[in-house]
Design a binder for these strands. Structure first.
Length: 349
DNA sequence: AATACGGGGCG
DNA sequence: CGCCCAGTATT
């Protein structure tokens, strides 16, 4: 009988796995947690720089819990999925209040924290606490789908359940953390989506997909849909080199991030400025539109620009703030790019 | 059970 | 340019 899947992965990991990722040295529960949240839907190479900066500013749960949310969001700006940062900040405060500042070491308590689902709980338990908990991220799904020749799209509940069953079944009681890291490393370095290096794979002896000579057919891809086009007008009210930003609501696009105010549908720029921002807008004019792609739709943004006239009543204080163009808070990437290309002196021909 | 959430990387 | 990536929360 051949060596089991777990043992082959563990042996391979010892020689060829990644052992020098920042969150592995030292591999504390807090660092594992932060890295896992950052790594949700975000690749390792992108996370590296964010993780180091984040750790320098928020070295432990207490520091994170006490930090103003604007600053947490600022350190997250550019990573996307901003609900992750909002949830993590709220979770840090609950960890301080309810768990004495230490991450809980059981699945139920971890799952109760905002932003921690089944897989992230499993990652924290196995990687940081050495508990035999299963994980199932994109890498694992790909490895299992290929090794077991699992047909179907993993986004389908029925398929996901089968993959979770494989994961639980094969997670070893001994060295579960190494196993979790091993299967993710295999998916990231050999069992890649395109051009997998099956020759070097420790599972190539009995991989179902390889036997079928159809490795790249697994996992079955997401059914493609075409993305609808939405439109938005963003308003840049200038006061010399300062611009008025608005904190967006916690949910929805760019949640909790500072951004240019969005002109309400059916309102002129001037009306919106007067009624929602509490100021007169002068010399308002549209600039060239640009399109930003999201996962589920495309957003055509038409930026409007104008100068601040006199204030016209009480605006929504707290959600509105003036910022120097040279010292912006974390703003969405396309907005940051647009603002960066504005002439510093508000000049019109 | 399906959908929303986002930016970066890559061929 | 299309597709994917260390998933979770919401509906």
């Amino acid at each position: 009988m051949a060596t089991g899947l777990a043992q082959r992965l563990l042996d391979w990991f010892q020689r060829h796995g990644r052992h020098d990722l920042p969150w592995q040295n030292p591999q504390t529960p807090y660092r594992v947690w932060v890295s896992e949240i950052m790594l949700q839907q975000t690749q390792v190479a992108t996370v590296l720089g964010y993780f180091e900066r984040f750790m320098r500013r928020f070295p432990d749960v207490q520091t994170l819990a006490q930090a103003p949310s604007d600053e947490v969001m600022q350190y997250w700006a550019g990573l996307g999925y901003y609900a992750r940062a909002r949830n993590m900040h709220a979770a840090a405060r609950r960890i301080v209040d309810e768990h004495g500042g230490e991450l809980p070491d059981n699945a139920e308590s971890l799952r109760a924290l905002p932003g921690i689902g089944e897989s992230t709980a499993g990652a924290i338990l196995s990687l940081a606490f050495g508990r035999p908990a299963a994980i199932l991220d994109g890498n694992c799904k790909r490895v299992y789908a290929r090794y077991f020749g699992e047909p179907g799209w993993p986004g389908e509940t029925r398929i996901a359940r089968r993959l979770w069953a494989y994961a639980r079944q094969h997670t070893p009681a001994d060295r579960p953390g190494d196993f979790a890291q091993a299967i993710m490393d295999l998916g990231a370095t050999l069992c890649t989506r395109k051009k997998p290096d099956c020759r070097r794979c420790p599972l190539n002896a009995d991989c179902r997909a390889l036997a079928e000579d159809a490795v790249e057919c697994y996992p079955y891809p997401r059914p493609k849909k075409q993305r609808p086009l939405r439109q938005a007008r963003l308003l840049a009210v200038m006061d010399d080199d300062r611009v008025l930003l608005e904190k967006r609501p916690p949910s929805g696009i760019w949640g909790s991030l500072w951004s240019l105010p969005e002109i309400g549908e059916g309102f002129t720029a001037e009306d919106h400025a007067r009624q929602m921002l509490g100021l007169q807008l002068e010399d308002a004019r549209p600039l060239e539109s640009f399109t930003h792609g999201f996962t589920h739709f495309e957003l055509q943004i038409t930026p409007w620009i104008g100068r601040k006239g006199q204030s016209a009543g009480v605006a929504d204080e707290g959600q509105l703030r003036w910022y120097s163009l040279a010292r912006l808070p974390g703003v969405p990437a396309p907005v940051a790019k647009f603002l960066a290309n504005l002439p510093t002196r508000n000049e019109s021909s």
